[in-house]
């Protein structure tokens, strides 16, 4: 008899136990803290060296020194984390939260606030997100 009804035990167990799946999207998924979701920048510390731009395997990051902007195309980014590793000032980080799908690719651009030479308390402009194309 050993050859027959081998799966019965599992079937019975599955009948009377909680489902292994979750009710997504009604119950949102909780990501562990190490999840590589998207790249974030602490723009105040950025020195616009362009190391992230040169090291990015898919070429998703663009650093414009003249305009003081750091731009990322999140649809091209593969979340490998090489920019984070390469950043000399460690101002990049990779945090949970995936890019939501959209009907067109767009870029996220962050402008570095211009710090006045003397210790004037100029209000820093907030990081802004502008769609391109």
């Amino acid at each position: 008899m050993a050859q027959f009804l081998t799966f019965t035990k599992t079937v019975m167990k599955n009948l009377f136990s909680k489902p292994a799946t979750t009710a997504y999207p009604a119950v949102p998924r909780e990501y562990p803290e190490r999840t590589r979701g998207h790249v974030e920048i602490n723009i105040e510390e950025c020195i616009m060296c362009g190391m992230c731009m040169r090291s990015c395997p898919p070429g998703a990051i663009e650093v414009k020194r003249a305009e003081n902007t750091w731009t990322i195309n999140r649809f091209d980014c593969v979340q490998c984390g090489y920019c984070v590793e390469k950043c000399p000032k460690k101002c990049l980080s990779i945090v949970p939260g995936y890019q939501e799908p959209g009907d067109a690719k767009f870029v996220d651009s962050v402008v570095k606030p211009v710090v006045e030479k003397p210790a004037e308390e100029a209000p820093k402009p907030a990081a802004e997100v502008k769609p391109a194309e």
């Binding site: 562990p32 190490r34 999840t35 979340q79 490998c80 984390g81 590793e85």
Partner: peptide
């Protein structure tokens, strides 16, 4: 895998000379 490396399929923890995490 997701808890330890941050990715479920692609782990990106290797580097030349060791591991990252």
């Amino acid at each position: 895998f997701e808890i330890s490396t941050g990715g479920r399929v692609i782990f990106s923890v290797n580097k030349i000379g060791g591991v990252l995490k």
